[in-house]
Design a protein around this nucleic acid. Structure first.
Lengths: 236, 236
DNA sequence: CGTCTGGTTGATCTAGATCAACAGGAGTGG
DNA sequence: CCACTCCTGTTGATCTAGATCAACCAGACG
């Protein structure tokens, strides 16, 4: 089709966890024949804040960050998208331009699905809409939660919390049975994600290290006492 | 039915703006015959955080606040629900217990719709799901926006922003052509809503009053210079 | 009349921002 | 190879928005 070897939607790893899992064979075939799959490298963007929304994206292996910028030059990293996530459907459904920028954080594979295809599928298969609804409800709940946390938690606790969330997504046990995690983010991005300055993140790192909770070496993180960690997070 | 004079769903004022506007006559009749409508007074609650979710609520005239509490005793007012809003459907769709408390902020009329009815209607009419999706997308976007603001805005600006939002919902022009607003919230709730202490809200009030932007008298607010207000809000 | 609750004001304290210096790579170019 | 810059991260010194603690006031209400 586009000259490249490409994974069909039928075999897509992200398939069972994504919204598209409810499609039947015909619909999947339509999706498969109209989607555009492409590898994208870290640092590039899927769309920019203010761009028109011509369709939506589905993330296969990779990591995408959603950024927001305002007129005064403030910037924040609003959230991260994992494999299987559909990206940009909010603007699509609102029929508005993109309100955020989607930036590739590590080498990824992304499928672009054109506006028209999405419309057709949404009309043909009501379950697709319900899946989107389910997903969006989770996202909204997550935002609500984070909003609450950013009001009530201290920076250190938000940071520890982030480490736990990242550990659930990217962590594993090493040969010594330790809980380790390769951070997919720079310190600056961590700061932008939890709403703090990079310096404060740095200091938080040395502090939790002194307390013996976590060990850092570059982007390698060892969570030394997960129980105590979760305890601290929920303690305030 | 329940012995009280009650408005039918057909005539419900909130109807054209709510999710339920896509129902056909049969479906509306089902909704009408199974819903339970009741007036509720300020201070009472629809449900508490931790309660089971037996169905959802639809708000007619009135105002409902959504509160969140955590184990450490922190509390926040997450958002306000206006007439036409459906309340509690997030927990319903997640099949989880309520994660928040819904508190009546002024005398309201609320319809309770039982779980089973919602399921039936969602299955029968796919458009209902899509309407929920639309609504939830707006809510999620709103949360995203507020999250961003709480990171980048100062308390004073968040407060001014809130005043503008409330003005759009509750404000009007008085006989002198001034933009006035009767606050539906106590200062404490304003504080809980934007994530600040009541004292800081108090101080913000005196400050903006000194600057001649807004005039306060109890819960009566006069926005004296809306243009300057919006300018200040977007300036940082 | 006292008691309570909500709001304002003042004094003080602190988490975290900001400003500034510096240190370790990673190129790049001679 | 060194010299150069660029970039990210750490650390220290200082500053400030906003929290916290405390006193006080005004209505509401028994």
């Amino acid at each position: 089709m586009n000259g490249k070897q490409s994974i069909g939607c039928f075999d897509c790893q992200a398939h069972p966890s994504s919204e598209w899992c409810v499609l039947d064979e015909d619909e999947l075939a339509l999706l498969n024949s109209t989607k555009v799959q492409k590898p994208v490298e870290a640092g590039s963007t899927l769309f920019h804040q203010g761009d028109n929304c011509d369709g939506i994206y589905c993330l296969e292996p990779g990591l995408v960050g959603i950024r927001r910028l305002d007129s005064a030059g403030n910037t924040a990293l609003l959230r991260l998208c994992s494999p299987g996530d559909t990206i940009g459907y909010r603007s699509f459904l609102l029929k508005s331009e993109h309100r955020t920028t989607a930036e590739i954080m590590m080498p990824s594979i992304v499928c672009f699905i054109h506006r028209q295809t999405v419309r057709t599928l949404l009309e043909r298969n009501p379950n697709l809409g319900l899946r989107f609804l389910d997903h969006n409800v989770k996202v909204a709940t997550d935002f609500e939660e984070r909003h609450f946390e950013s009001i009530t938690f201290t920076v250190k606790n938000r940071f520890l919390n982030l480490l736990m969330v990242l550990y659930e997504r990217f962590g594993h046990l090493n040969e010594n049975g330790e809980s380790v995690l390769e951070l997919p983010l720079s310190r600056q991005d961590i700061a932008a994600l939890i709403g703090a300055s990079p310096e404060t993140i740095s200091r938080s790192i040395t502090r939790v290290q002194d307390e013996g909770l976590v060990r850092f070496k570059g982007r390698q993180v060892v969570l030394q006492d997960i129980d105590e960690l979760t305890r601290q997070i929920s303690a305030s």
